[in-house]
Write a protein that binds this DNA or RNA. Structure first.
Lengths: 121, 121
DNA sequence: TAGCTTGTTAGCATTTACGCTTACATTATA
DNA sequence: TATAATGTAAGCGTAAATGCTAACAAGCTA
């Protein structure tokens, strides 16, 4: 499903594993009511710590985890922690991003860049 | 000067233009005491709005403005608004960043990418 | 029917951040 | 010397976010 909220994403993964909201809340050590609010998107996605406990409890793949992190971030006008760190510590990356923005690089061009990265190393 | 704090950066630019702290605070419409705290790094960098007023008041170049935004962000474990937005709205960019991180791309490789971007368009 | 389980509503406590006001010591100027 | 101007210290008010507790209705199950 595309264009899900964070809450919907978590709920789907949780139910797919046949876990009740209450026991899921227990597993990741938060209050059920809080979990409910999150799934219904009445609250922001929680902190990174809790996000990571969710990933573990739901046994998400790397890809799924990244999606969860991105959805969590987007619920807050933010970007995921791993990306934030990478960009923060890399001046060249910031230059590259601003240049790409400036040049109005589209998806196609970024795809090429991604493909070429593999070769580069 | 490299590895400056946000406060130091602003103070330097301000003094280079011969503006007093008080009148600078006036120009950008914040309390002098607040400005003082900021320059001394006793407070986080202020909101985006105020940052932009600073850029105007100091008549910074684009490059300087980006540096100011990045320093402001780094004072808060964050990344600059323009980058945040760009990354947020671009799935491919996020994929690219994570791949780069994964491959442990260094400065040199990013420089190449930057150079190649110019050609791409 | 009595009693658990499930999800949910309402509201509280705490922390953190932003920006302000007021008052002060120091330096420069009339 | 008296007055300005400059930068700073201390502390307040407000707002937003995080996560909680307590209590409820609806559905299952014994």
């Amino acid at each position: 499903m595309v264009n899900m909220t964070f809450g919907e994403f978590v709920k789907e993964k949780r139910r797919k594993k046949g876990i009740t909201l209450r026991s899921f809340a227990d597993m990741i050590n938060i209050a059920p009511a809080y979990m409910s609010d999150i799934e219904k998107s009445k609250r922001n996605a929680p902190t990174q710590e809790i996000l990571e406990r969710m990933v573990k409890a739901l046994e998400l793949s790397n890809e799924e985890a990244n999606e969860l992190f991105d959805l969590a971030a987007s619920s807050k006008d933010a970007i995921a922690q791993d990306l934030k760190e990478y960009v923060s510590y890399n001046q060249k990356v910031r230059v590259a991003l601003r240049k790409a923005k400036d040049l109005n690089l589209g998806d196609d061009e970024w795809i090429k860049i991604i493909e070429e990265m593999a070769n580069k190393k």
